[in-house]
Design a binder for these strands. Structure first.
Length: 768
DNA sequence: ATTCTATGTATTTTT
DNA sequence: TACATAGAAT
């Protein structure tokens, strides 16, 4: 028991302190946005250690992202020091990988199994659909993987699905066939997809009670963050881990009292907020949190409603929005941080106009003393980044996109990782297929088919088939190329014990000539690819340095499980751009929620789904509650959606915010301005003014394809210039050099802006 | 087998 | 718009 004057309770309110010290076997902490739940969670863990209630090794804490795990580990370490080393603090997926690697041999897998990410999964399903001719039936990789994932999240496996196939439905029959082949190929390749990691761990515990007992005895305190976003499979995993251990399951080596009485169920603490549940589309089941008290009789529930993050105005607006969701437990966040500024609303003509507003406001915030890393821009879809990037680049505004087209999804990265996968796990057929002709070795589909057929016939892996290539009667050129590849794989496998991941990667790059080929290429994009290759090498070196005992398999695991939010580093002085989903769990001094329009937020795709609108509203709520001081909500009246301009209407969510909390503006370029979105809501969308024509062509090109190059332009403070969009202005400052030269211009009509000189559409005004 | 060109189709969110 | 795929040319 923690003493009342423990430093771990310092500065906590009563409810928080209660959450830290509770002895309940099952504890639900309903933590509203910004209510200090990470503090509570970390201090609770530290308290368990300090009061000798638990050893570090008895603690399992589950977070949503690796970044959150890292942060939690750091904060726990700050409280308890070295002791944090022995704890498991990780995501569901990482924890499952660790368990599965340990127990792999028990169920006929190798420790070095591969994890197939969504891209790998897609590629495999696509091939299977083609092989089955299932595209005729309208099955797509997306629909198949979606359905598979939904079933897996409900713990339905292929074998049990077989019984419920509707034989009269050719679509369903084909789906079953595909799924069954998919799992067979995964098993042959010694691979798991994301969902399988959870499902197989649950199945492992159910099939081997003695294994389950090992982990139930080991983890005496389990803590789960973001519980509202757990799906049924994850719920089942938690249930498996929180069972009591009967005397029969206790090993001989255990202390006598345990052998006699068994062991009571481990203690469970979950933290969550049903108002922030935004992953239903991925199988998250809100009932897990809503029905917690029923699931765990005698559970204690603690509600944290005091918000330590945001100004009251922001909370009032957020509360007003979320209260529109019916069937929700009443909860009202309050803050003692003062009312703060009104929420700034902005209506632009186009997405570029909107982006320009965001850039201008960021400029003002910087002048007020905000730092770039204190500012974030959120959007509903990744496609919205384009306009933002265009404007940000032109204004030399340092930004970083979190998530989006991820580094590890790039072709060159996947190529090199496929080599590593093929080396670490020779059974991985997908990886071998990928590298077969990368870089180009003159091996086409015909040769690939021959190799696969040989492997199948002989009942060997594809890697083994490569070694038998000379028995296949292929041409001398092809045979030579394949045995060379085979040699390389064998050789690098043999050095696995002594070589680091970085060394193996380096060897792959050198021996295949991958980097050299990119360098010699005359495709300008290949230059960027060389940089990516080097970056991957850097990542591997860093990993090998930081994880002395971690080898190739560990490196590949880490790489496979990175999440979007993990990319966020607080060190850099950049504005962060991310989707609303990625924003969950983060906070920023100033936040821009962009594209607050019908069809986008709420997204049109959500309209058909049951509960879709409520989830969109929660998403908006999550975005709003990330802001500490300043919240901006913006929208555009028209938006380019695949090539075509679409007229947009303001989001219904904006109507849910009390008028007096907001201050609306528009771009003020002439008489086409909207007065307020309230007015425009009543207006027919079609009658909305169209954005000026020239503007579209102006921004149509992406920045890197623009031919303009002002690098020769000689500018000085005080010079008068004219900008195509902003009109005449005077240069007030110049910074940076060469292609990075930035001019600060005071425009006569639109105020101060920063421009990247090299690409700005400006000309010197003569005669001044 | 590879590379170039034309055509069609698709964008929600992600561990 | 832009990306992926299919078809044609080399």
């Amino acid at each position: 028991m923690l003493p009342a004057d423990s430093p771990l309770l310092e500065g906590l309110n009563d409810r928080q302190a209660q959450a830290v010290t509770s002895q309940a076997g099952a504890l639900l902490i309903v933590a509203g946005a910004g209510s200090g739940k990470t503090s509570v969670l970390t201090r609770r863990i530290a308290g368990l250690i300090a009061s000798k209630t638990a050893w570090p090794s008895q603690i399992l804490a589950i977070t949503f992202t690796n970044k959150a795990a890292g942060e939690m580990r750091e904060r726990v370490a700050a409280l308890v020091g070295e002791a944090s080393q022995g704890m498991w603090i990780s995501t569901f997926h990482s924890a499952c990988v660790r368990i599965l690697r340990t127990e792999a041999e028990r169920f006929g897998y190798t420790k070095a199994f591969t994890i197939y990410d969504s891209g790998d999964q897609r590629a495999l399903i696509k091939r299977l659909i083609r092989d089955h001719g299932a595209d005729r039936l309208g099955l797509t990789p997306a629909s198949v993987s979606g359905k598979m994932s939904r079933l897996k999240n409900e713990l339905v496996d292929v074998d049990s699905y077989r019984g419920q196939v509707r034989e009269s439905d050719p679509n369903d029959v084909a789906f079953y066939q595909l799924w069954s082949d998919y799992q067979a190929e995964l098993a042959r390749s010694q691979a798991f997809d994301f969902d399988d990691l959870i499902v197989h761990t649950v199945q492992l515990f159910r099939a081997f009670p003695e294994v389950a007992a090992v982990y139930r005895r080991r983890f005496r305190h389990i803590l789960v963050d973001e519980y509202q976003d757990t799906n049924h499979a994850q719920y089942a995993l938690i249930r498996e881990l929180t069972q009591a251990v009967s005397p029969e399951q206790v090993p001989e080596s255990a202390p006598p009292h345990e052998r006699e009485n068994g062991l009571e169920a481990p203690a469970l603490t979950v933290v969550g907020d049903s108002d922030q549940s935004i992953y239903a589309f991925r199988g998250a089941d809100i009932r897990n949190i809503v029905e917690f008290e029923r699931d765990f009789p005698g559970a204690e529930v603690i509600l944290l409603e005091q918000n330590y993050r945001s100004k009251q105005t922001i909370l009032d607006a957020a509360n007003a929005v979320i209260s529109q969701n019916f069937d929700r437990k009443a909860k009202n966040l309050f803050s003692e941080l003062g009312a703060g500024d009104k929420i700034q609303g902005f209506t632009g003509y186009s997405q570029h106009d909107e982006a320009q507003f965001v850039a201008d406001e960021i400029g003002k915030l910087i002048d007020e003393g905000y730092r770039y890393q204190d500012i974030a821009v959120f959007y509903r879809t990744n496609a919205q980044t384009r306009a933002m990037e265009d404007v940000f680049i032109r204004q030399a505004l340092p930004y970083r996109i979190i998530g989006g087209t991820k580094f590890y999804e790039r072709a060159e990265i996947k190529d090199l990782l496929a080599y590593l996968h093929a080396i670490a796990n020779p059974a991985d057929a997908l990886a071998v297929r990928r590298i077969l002709n990368t870089p180009k070795r003159g091996i086409g589909p015909a040769t690939e088919a021959t190799l696969v057929a040989h492997a199948e016939q002989a009942g060997i892996t594809l890697s083994q088939a490569l070694t038998e290539v000379d028995q296949m009667g292929l041409g001398p050129k092809v045979t030579g190329a394949i045995s060379e590849l085979s040699q390389l794989l064998i050789e690098l496998r043999s050095t696995l014990d002594s070589a680091t991941a970085a060394e193996t990667l380096k060897a792959v790059i050198d021996r295949t000539g991958y980097r050299t080929l990119l360098e010699r290429s005359n495709d300008p994009q290949d230059l960027a690819r060389v940089e990516n290759v080097d970056e991957l090498l850097g990542v591997a070196s860093e990993f090998s340095r930081g994880n002395q005992d971690g080898g190739l398999v560990e490196f590949l695991t880490e790489v496979s499980l990175v999440a979007a939010a993990d990319e966020l580093d607080d060190s850099g002085g950049t504005v962060s751009l991310m989707t609303l989903h990625t924003a969950k769990g983060l906070e920023f001094d100033a936040v821009f929620v962009t594209g607050v329009e019908e069809e986008l937020l709420p997204h049109r795709m959500s309209a058909n789904e049951p509960g879709g609108l409520a989830e969109e509203r929660r998403l908006f709520y999550v975005g709003m509650t990330r802001a500490k001081n300043k919240l901006h909500l913006s929208l555009a009246m028209s938006r380019q959606t695949f090539g075509e301009a679409m007229v947009c209407a303001p989001s219904r969510f904006l109507r849910e915010i009390p008028e007096e909390l907001m201050q609306w503006r528009d771009s003020g370029l002439g008489d086409r301005a909207l007065t307020a979105p309230r007015t425009s809501l009543e207006r027919e969308p079609r009658s909305l003014p169209r954005p000026p024509r020239e503007k579209n062509t102006q921004w149509a090109n992406r920045i890197d394809t623009v031919v303009r190059d002002n690098s020769e332009m000689e500018l000085a403070v005080g010079d008068r210039i004219t900008h195509d969009d902003f009109g005449p202005g005077t240069i007030s400052a110049l910074t940076g050099a060469g292609p990075k030269r930035v001019a600060e211009v005071r425009f006569d009509q639109v105020g101060k802006k920063r421009l990247l000189v090299k690409i700005a559409p400006i000309s010197l005004t003569p005669g001044v």
